[in-house]
Write a protein that binds this DNA or RNA. Structure first.
Lengths: 154, 154
DNA sequence: TGTATTTGACTATCTTCGATACGAATAAGA
DNA sequence: TCTTATTCGTATCGAAGATAGTCAAATACA
C-alpha cells in the first residue's frame, strides 16, 4: 500500500534504459548474492580435501573438545539433528571423526588422527579464504563488516 | 530458525572465558549465518503471497519492462536458464506473468494484471523487510553494510 | 517404585536453490 | 547450404535445510 518508508523509492519507475539490476541497492538482496558467491567459492576451495562447507565447519568446531555431542554441535551451528546424522556419518565413514559413547545415550564426536591432519588442511584453506574475503572489502568498510553481520543473527 | 531472540541458551557450551563459538569471528561464517537467517525470514514473510524468494525477485525485476527474456532475467539474477524454466513456469501457471513471443525464438516475460497486484504485495513485504534488516544493524555500521557486500560480488 | 515425559540419535522424505548434461529449434555466419 | 551459436526447455543431480516420526535411554515425578 502506501509506502510509509523513508527510503529511496524507485519502485514503480525502474528506469529501464541503462540500469540492469534495480535490486542491487536492496540490503537483503546484496546479502544473498554476496553469501552465495562466497559460499560457492569456499565450496570449490574445500573440494580439494573433499569436504563440504558444513562438514568443514564441524571439524573446525570440535577441534580441541572431546565431549561434544552431535546435538551440541547442531545447536552451535544451527543444524537440525536430522541433518547432523548423515553429516557425522560421512565424516565417520571417511575416518575423520569417531563416535565415542559418553553414556548409554549420548555420543561424543571427536577428531581422529586423520581428522586432525585434514583439519590442518581445512585451516589453511579457510584462513586464506577469509583473508581474501576481507581484502576485497574497501578498507573504510572492512571493520564494520563482521559487527554488522553479527547483528543480524547473534 | 526460531532463535532470533537473545536467549542465553548456551549452557552446554564453554563459558565466555575461552570462546563459545570459534567460528563466530570468521567473516565467511558470519556472512553465511546472517544470510541464512535473513533469507529464512524473508521466505516466511513471502509465504503470505505464496512466493519463494527467487520468484519474488523475478517479479521485482521485470516490473515496467516488456521485452525481458528468460535468459536476460537469468543473467541479471545469476540464475541458470535450466533453473529459470520451472521458475517462470510456475509464475505462468499462477497467472502472474505470461510469455509473449518476441521473434519466434525469444519469449518476453511480462507481468499480467494479477502479477502486478501480487507485485504490489511483494513490494510491501520486501520494503518492510529491508527496513527491519537495516534497523537491526547498529547505526555506526549501517552505511557500510551494502557497499561492503557489493564488493564481494559486483 | 512405577509411570510419564523429555532427550539424543536416527530414518525417511520433502523443499529450495543451484549445477550439469543434453536435446530441439531458431538465428547467424562461413 | 552447412555449420555454429544461441535460446528455451527437459531431466537429473547435489547441497543445505526442514518435518514427521521411531526408538531407546535418561530424567522427572506422583
Amino acid at each position: 500500500m502506501a509506502d510509509t518508508s523513508g527510503k529511496p523509492d524507485n519502485g514503480s519507475l525502474p528506469a529501464p534504459d541503462g540500469e540492469p539490476d534495480p535490486l542491487a541497492i536492496l540490503p537483503g538482496y546484496t546479502l544473498r548474492r554476496a553469501a552465495n558467491a562466497m559460499m560457492a567459492e569456499l565450496g570449490t576451495l574445500l573440494s580439494e580435501v573433499d569436504l563440504r562447507v558444513s562438514e568443514a565447519s564441524i571439524l573446525l568446531l570440535i577441534d580441541g573438545r572431546d565431549t561434544m555431542t552431535s546435538s551440541q554441535i547442531g545447536t552451535a551451528l544451527d543444524i537440525r539433528s536430522a541433518n547432523m546424522a548423515p553429516l557425522i556419518g560421512r565424516l565417520v565413514t571417511r575416518g575423520l571423526v569417531e563416535r565415542v559413547p559418553l553414556d548409554g545415550k549420548s555420543m561424543a564426536i571427536i577428531l581422529t588422527v586423520e581428522g586432525e591432519a585434514t583439519l590442518h588442511e581445512v585451516r589453511r584453506i579457510t584462513q586464506t579464504f577469509e583473508q581474501d574475503l576481507l581484502q576485497r572489502i574497501p578498507t573504510e568498510h572492512r571493520d564494520h563488516f563482521v559487527p554488522a553481520l553479527n547483528a543480524l543473527w547473534r
